[in-house]
Amino acid sequence: MDQFLQSIFGDTILTHVFMSVLPLLFLLVCAVVTIYVEMKMAAHMQDRLAYMRTGWHGTLQPVADILKLLQKEDIIPASADKFLFMLAPYIVFVGTYAAFAVLPFSSSYIGSAVDLGLFYVIAVSALVVVGILMAGWASNNKWSLFGAIRSASQVISYEIPAALAVLAVVMITGTMSMNEITKFQEGGIQNWLIFGGPLPIVHKLLLIPVMIVLAVVYYVCSMAEVNRTPFDIPEAESELVQGYNTEFTGMKFAIFYLAEYANLFLVSAIAVVLFFGGWSSPFGSFMSGPWWSLFWFSLKGMLFVCLNIWLRWTLPRLRVDQLMYVSWKVLVPFALVCVVLVGAIMVM
């Protein structure tokens, strides 16, 4: 892909710019589709129809929503800290989008094939926390500040079990590169890490229960990191209006919204890379290749996005103390035990 683009543009800088814009295009389409799917799924789960008037079954509604957001007046509250208020949405989005640099979208497209991909993803998400704190503080609003502080403490707490689950995968694959982890799981559905990876049969059978627990731990943590129900206490609308983005309107709000959906796809994609074979085809070499791998990656990613939406509209919100209980007293011990078990199985 890199060489191909270079042969078209004949210029390294232009190639890199083009390479770095591709995930953004994917993301914009993905966000529009996710918004539509979310509204429809939510409506059908609550026995209603959602929008039906704009286009066939309301398919044009997300486009209308975006046009509406684009022309809204951009209001900055009088007592807000103007500079930080304007900067915050961009910091949040940059933090989310930066992680897309190491996502292997297809067997021939990855923004940056660094060896430390997973480590980088965990590290760069810290930027989102800072952006959220910035938004909450700059709004000069109690709801916003409370939302921001809740969100930051939640993301920090759930990073620990998530990092432990990632560590267990790294212990099996022996690499932190997301592309290498995907290649490790190539060769069909039985080689995915959730089914023990391409290891000898004894190791595989022992690993399967451990990997299932780790996948659940990682998925719960990822739901907490995107601040959605049942982990939406940062924006709990019945207590905090809308949390850290209460005061934001127009494009600034749209950027927060986009960052949320980008983050949702990102954590789903990481779960896919870690446990479900990334871009590799479930049928071995059948239906594989650069375009098919892009198809499999987006399909698996969207499936987990849909799972998240399903859970969002099914489960009630956790209380603050329950939230901390789940992270520190349930997920962390389970993840620690799993890491030790994986280590023991791997040295066997």
Partner: peptide
């Protein structure tokens, strides 16, 4: 120094900066 760079982000932005912000805001 890729490892050092990511560790810098992890420790300083993810840990120390968030801690400072919490201290200042609260």
């Amino acid at each position: 120094a890729d490892f050092l760079a990511i560790t810098q982000l992890m420790v300083y932005v993810g840990g120390i900066l968030v801690l400072i912000l919490f201290g200042v805001m609260l």
